[in-house]
């Protein structure tokens, strides 16, 4: 079966969805990403959907699931490049993906992830003496 490739770039995972997503493919992506976040220790997941002509409730739910799971695994998911027509349709459908972070394009999405990782590092460094006094 086809699978959507997942690239690792620094502390992030990159996914570009370029095919018409059928449900099994979406489910496989969710599973693969979950595995990969853990195995790679990624801090961010960037999903580029600029090639997607539609996002229906199933794909929408998959995106929300990925965001939810990755958050639990301490990684931030950013969905980038949603087309206007797709966004209008999703809202009309009643799906506003409240837990999902978004950005206009891959570049902005990466910036968002980097900023978040930098903040986490800084906070982590500041917290370290209190949390792990022996370090």
């Amino acid at each position: 079966m086809d699978r959507i490739p997942i690239l690792k770039l620094g502390h992030s995972l990159l996914v570009t969805i370029q095919v018409d997503m059928h449900d099994r493919l979406a489910m496989a992506l969710e599973e693969d990403l979950t595995q990969k976040i853990v195995s790679s220790g990624a801090k961010g997941v960037l999903i580029d959907i600029s090639a997607l002509e539609i996002v229906d409730s199933f794909i929408g739910r998959t995106l929300a699931n990925i965001a939810g799971v990755s958050r639990m695994l301490d990684a931030d998911t950013v969905v980038v490049g949603m087309r206007p027509a797709v966004a209008i349709t999703l809202v009309e459908l009643g799906l506003s993906l409240p837990g999902v972070r978004t950005a206009l394009n891959a570049e902005r999405g990466m910036a968002l992830i980097s900023r978040r990782v930098a903040e986490a590092d800084r906070d982590g460094a500041a917290d370290a003496p209190d949390v792990h006094g022996d370090e």
């Binding site: 969905v79 980038v80 490049g81 949603m82 087309r83 206007p84 797709v86 966004a87 209008i88 999703l90 809202v91 009309e92 506003s96 993906l97 978004t102 950005a103 206009l104 394009n105 902005r108 999405g109």
Partner: peptide, 12 residues
């Protein structure tokens, strides 16, 4: 409201 929601989905 829908426009605001749609813009957010696009990242704006």
């Amino acid at each position: 409201l829908k426009t605001v929601a749609a813009a957010r989905l696009m990242g704006a």
